[in-house]
Nucleic acid binder design. Sequence first.
DNA 1: GTGCCTGTTACCTC
DNA 2: AGAGGTAACAGGCA
Length: 280
Amino acid sequence: MPELPEVETVAEDLRKALLVGLTFNDVKILWNRSIAIPSATDFTKRIKGQKIVKIARRGKYLLLHLSEDVLLVHLRMTGKLLLKNDKVPHSSYERVIFYLNDGRQLRFEDTRKFGKCYLVSQAADVIGKLGPEPLETNFPDEQWVKALKSKKRLIKPLLLDQSFIAGLGNIYVDEALWEAKIHPKRLSNTLSSHESSALSKAIVNVLNKGISSQGTTLGRGKTNFYRLDGKPGKNASQMHVFRKTGLPCPRCKTLIKRIVVGQRSTHYCPGCQKEQKSVK
DNA sequence: GTGCCTGTTACCTC
DNA sequence: AGAGGTAACAGGCA
């Protein structure tokens, strides 16, 4: 569920909620496997007394730089961070509760239990292998363009590969490929330089739009994305193809198709995203 | 209830 | 190298 724009939204929400400067008094771990590193007991011991110094994001990871360590959170499919006071009733999906020294609680809820928290002294131990940040000013660089050419992979699974480019998930990849008019099964090494450039522009554009509308919340189920205060994002109304199967393409009116690429549900417009003519 | 779907990623085999 | 399968889980939905 949460991709780069959703994580960025939560990071910004945490900053606006004035968490920088606060200290973790304690933590309660309700599901041990939500803690990836270190063990649950060491995690609890180490985080106590650490102050939040800076809040950042890298790819789909949220980073809380603490006085000694870095706390990283990956929300995976259904993870959520919610800021509540001690009077708010607890949900059965809470996996970790962080107690702040101003009385508020940062609650990590995660229905499917795929999300992970990491407490490490070096963030690179967790995020060291991530590919470039699509919203950094130096994106795309020659290396990324070269990599696109040198790899011989289906473009959609390649864009989902976090070591190739960080932060994209199923929603924004489908949207970016639609915007760049590239078929999701095109081979990366067959993209023209015009297409590569359209693609990087589309990636930046869909991500920026996602951030400025505070993320994508599809439907109102409990497994969907919600912000720190529980409100939904507003980006769903800006989707062009994602889960629009059978609806007319906003650009050419051809009906949107759903196929499976790399075991992932994929939405595209057969009219403006033509499959390559010859696949050798 | 049944059966298949899901916005993620790691790990395995071929 | 890259593709495909499976697993970690549990709700959503027809």
